[in-house]
Design a protein around this nucleic acid. Sequence first.
DNA 1: TTAGGAACTTACAAAAGTGTAACTATGAGT
DNA 2: ACTCATAGTTACACTTTTGTAAGTTCCTAA
Lengths: 122, 122
Amino acid sequence: MSRIKRSSTHQENKQLLEAECPEIYAANQISGQWTIGICSWLGNGRLRFSELKKVMPGITERILTLELKKLEQRGMIIRHVFPDVPVRVEYELTPIGLELIPILKQLEEWGRKHKAAQSSEV
Amino acid sequence: MSRIKRSSTHQENKQLLEAECPEIYAANQISGQWTIGICSWLGNGRLRFSELKKVMPGITERILTLELKKLEQRGMIIRHVFPDVPVRVEYELTPIGLELIPILKQLEEWGRKHKAAQSSEV
DNA sequence: TTAGGAACTTACAAAAGTGTAACTATGAGT
DNA sequence: ACTCATAGTTACACTTTTGTAAGTTCCTAA
């Protein structure tokens, strides 16, 4: 009798979790294959679109655009446009974005340890 | 001339990033809709399958199983089986898993702040 | 006039992740 | 013989994320 659920419970679940757990909310803010990498690079100072592309070989322009747009909408970065020719665009972390950097550093430390522990187990 | 790329560059990218950036590696270890929630709950002590199900209404048995299996494989949790009837299974964080908890706490703090900042912007 | 660089956009395709529903094994209690 | 509970598993459908390839706009310099 073909009863097909139309609305996505996936989104519902995500939003409920975000509402109740700030740590999940936080993780979702920096979700995305390249997002943390971008934030880490920007932690050292502004970078332009083409510089980000250079430091993250493998990312495509489409994805980089999407990620940057997402981060901007989420209040993590600021987009500065300079009307040079060709146009120049620089991206910079916002204050709240900057506050994430030390946490990423700790994650980095933990990751290093975890990786070492895992690989030693054969 | 239908040239279709067969292999997934997605996986390739992921692995390259993980190899170079421990913070991305770390984030991937705790990726998954419910993963951080599970770790947080286990941060307070062992819980059995059915207890996790109870504290995270919304998760299905299938997903809970998958997440727990993934976390076990990644060395984040330990699975204790007690041959009672019906069987009892408890999950517990490993030492390295426990070390993640304080970082999650900080993420939680940051998430709270970020959320407040975002919502105040209309 | 044509080429060129920066920062995108568009249309499409593939892969990964998540969810639904129903089914399994085990042994105890009735 | 039948139901119950725990802790799963299986087959399948749907959503979201990521990737490919090509095109766009702006102005400038050759």
